[in-house]
């Protein structure tokens, strides 16, 4: 075997190993956020876009969901024998940026530049962008969810009734389907 061929084989081996060590897929995280989005989006139709309950819901559900996501990821990492602390920080930064942009967007509604219903749609659009970027950089399973969120955003603009609930169902379904995909491709090793 020539040197060039050996080198090629070695690189193919390293590449295959790197692909096998792909990101940890934790379906429970997808199901958790599917439930939180379904309830949160539906709440807008139930109590009205300007209700304080929407803010209260997300102020509780957001941090609790983030904490549970962190806990489940660490637990899955210990089980599979792969710790990705730097990647975890990148996830947190991604969604912190979304949260910060969303909070700044509240200024539009507070100053009357945007209706509260418009603000809810804007949050969904920002979430679609965040999921798209996370899908590009961190976990490709999130790309279809970004598509569902973008569709959900359009639904909230044009559907006459139950628009946020409809968007919530769509997003929850996309998250659940992505949660189910890829299950069983990793197993406990320790």
């Amino acid at each position: 075997m020539t040197d060039a061929k050996l080198l090629k084989d070695d690189l193919a081996y390293v590449r295959a190993a790197a692909e096998r060590s792909g990101p940890d897929h934790v379906p429970a995280i997808y199901f958790l956020w599917a439930s939180l989005c379904l309830c949160g989006f539906t709440l807008i139709d139930l109590v009205g876009a300007g209700s304080k309950w929407i803010g209260i819901y997300w102020l509780v559900a957001g941090p609790v969901g983030t904490g549970l996501t962190w806990w489940m990821s660490v637990r899955a990492g210990r089980r599979t024998g792969q710790a990705d602390r730097r990647k975890g920080k990148r996830w947190v930064n991604h969604f912190l940026a979304f949260f910060a942009a969303g909070l700044l967007g509240c200024g539009l509604a507070a100053t009357g530049e945007l209706s509260w219903s418009g603000l809810s749609s804007l949050w969904i659009l920002l979430l679609a962008l965040t999921y798209f970027l996370a899908g590009l950089h961190l976990e490709r399973h999130l790309l279809p969810v970004a598509g569902a969120l973008a569709t959900g955003y359009v639904i909230t603009l044009f559907l006459p009734e139950y628009r946020f609930a409809t968007a919530g169902v769509l997003v929850a379904l996309a998250l659940a389907v992505q949660g189910l995909r890829g299950t069983g491709n990793r197993h406990a090793t320790n």
């Binding site: 190993a17 790197a18 060590s21 024998g81 710790a83 990647k87 090793t189 320790n190």
Partner: peptide
């Protein structure tokens, strides 16, 4: 080389996980 590249990508890996990958 593969061990080092894997550990450059992931912060830490267990013996069993490296063996599997």
């Amino acid at each position: 080389l593969a061990i080092c590249i894997l550990l450059a990508e992931h912060d830490a890996m267990s013996f069993s996980r490296l063996k599997q990958v």
